[in-house]
Write a protein that binds this DNA or RNA. Structure first.
Length: 425
RNA sequence: GGAGAGAUGGCAGAGUGGUCGAUUGCGGCGGUCUUGAAAACCGUUGUACCGAGAGGUACCGGGGGUUCGAAUCCCUCUCUCUCCGCCA
């Protein structure tokens, strides 16, 4: 979330930048400024009254100690009026404060100056492309048909056990999942990321910390008995490792990676978007997270983009990198690069990674700070994350792009992870 | 699921109504000593908000209450630990 003081000091900037995200912030900013001003007045007045009260209490204590009981008692009589005033001021403060908090979470993050203006996906800017478009054999099939033909993924069985969007991977289908997870984790480790295994369920505070709550509540599976949420991405538990933490500036950037299953309700999805592996309720993903110094967070972003690029290149998949326009960006992001791979039989681009710099937006909620050498005041850090990578669509692209008339070839880098198997028949 | 204990600063651990943001130890930082280091000794070491500043306010798991005054008393919630039961 945005810092209130920042909004108060830079109202025009906030309104102008959020317009790029096609968000009209005028009314909210105006309210925030008025409430913020009033809150400070109330706070100052309340604290002045409290200071007087504290002083008086000390004096009463002294009077009792010195045996001046009647003076003490008359002093006590003066306290009730002050107490009432404090009570009134505090309740006014609380009302304003919660109104401010509610407004504060309505404002999206400011997009970076690099963000292109635009309405939706069609206005995203392609910043790089790579890989070679495969030439498919005649009668090439989409991945859901290949999955059935080679008995790799059983969608119907998943429906029986759980419901749509929970496929069962079998044989080489299961092994290729495991191969990809291991490959991605190994690559991340070689690139300086610390591997962690986080919980798959998080509490309310964590879901709030990364911005899933309050507004994306409907996208998460919720266990109401224990009030826990199934994670939609490892970003949530991993980033929350750093909630309420002050780190040493010299330790930045802190690079963390985790594999997790991810759970998304995907309410409102339908049609060809949800066919096969294109959109699932449960899927596997390896996530990379960085905690960065504000001066260096865009270096970290570039580092992460280059890293994800190296993964799709090693897998030999045709890809393109998009810089998302204002209208297509997420609520919490300042700058996002999406990676898409070409799924040759479906003849469409599939999003397999989203790499974002959140700047201080998440860290403000998380109270994630860093401290420079010496006794400097802690400052809000920057957070970034990216998928590296999400599995289902990678699997879809591999199945489709690597299909031949007598089997599905295994990308070279995965062969050692599949016990030397070079082709799935 | 049953029974009990507990939640205090980076960590350990005092503090049962007033001058307590909080004794002390460890750790951290700075210094003395040393060729250097260790040891020893000395000093220092929470966060947020308000304020131009001086300074003020709040925070001892969360919320509420009693009181002139609460880390301390009362109520309530949450969480953690131990033992028993069940179990991968």
């Amino acid at each position: 979330m945005l810092n209130l003081k920042f909004i108060q000091e830079n109202p025009e900037l906030v309104i102008e930048r959020l317009a790029v995200k096609r968000f009209d912030a005028c009314a909210i900013v105006e309210k925030v400024i008025a409430l913020y001003k009033r809150r400070n007045e109330v706070q100052t007045e309340a604290e002045t009254q409290k200071a007087g009260m504290n002083q008086l209490s000390k004096e009463i204590g002294q009077l009792f100690k010195n045996g001046k009981v009647s003076e003490a008692n008359s002093a006590k009589e003066r306290t009730s009026e002050i107490k009432d005033q404090i009570k009134n001021l505090e309740s006014e403060f609380d009302v304003i404060d919660s109104e401010l908090a509610q407004l504060q979470v309505l404002l999206p993050n400011l997009p970076s100056p690099l963000v292109p203006v635009g309405k939706g996906a069609e206005d995203n800017v392609i910043v790089a492309t790579g890989g070679e478009m495969p030439v498919l054999p005649k009668g090439a099939k989409p991945h859901w048909e290949l999955a059935a033909q080679y008995d790799l993924i059983d969608f119907e069985l998943g429906v029986k056990i759980t419901g749509a969007g929970f496929p069962v991977y079998k044989g080489f289908g299961a092994r290729i999942q495991r191969a990809l997870i291991n490959f991605f984790l190994d690559q991340a480790r070689e690139n300086g990321y610390l591997e962690v295994q986080p919980p798959y369920m998080v509490n309310e505070a964590s879901a709030f910390g990364t911005g899933q709550l309050p507004d994306k509540e409907g996208q998460m599976y919720h266990d109401s008995v224990d009030n826990l949420y199934l994670i939609p991405t490892a970003e949530v538990p991993v980033t929350n490792i750093f909630r309420d933490v002050i780190v040493d500036a010299k330790d930045l950037p802190i690079k963390t990676t985790a594999y997790s299953a991810c759970f998304r309700r995907e309410a409102g999805s339908y049609g060809k978007d949800v066919r096969g592996l294109n959109r699932l309720h449960q899927f596997d993903k390896v996530e990379v997270v960085q905690i960065a110094h504000p001066d260096k967070s865009y270096d970290s972003l570039n580092d992460m983009v280059a890293y994800v690029q190296s993964l799709v290149e090693k897998l030999g998949l045709p890809y393109r990198i998009l810089r998302l326009c204002g209208g297509d960006m997420g609520f919490t992001s300042a700058l996002t690069y999406d990676f898409e791979v070409w799924s040759a039989a479906q003849e469409r681009w599939l999003e397999v990674s989203s790499v974002s710099n959140f700047e201080s937006f998440q860290a403000t909620r998380l109270k994630l700070r860093y401290r420079e050498e010496g006794r400097a005041k802690p400052q809000i850090a920057h957070t970034l994350n990216g998928s590296a990578l999400a599995l289902p669509r990678i699997v879809a692209a591999i199945l489709e792009n690597y299909q031949t008339t007598d089997g599905i070839r295994v990308p070279k880098v995965l062969v050692p992870y599949l016990g030397g198997c070079e082709i799935i028949r």
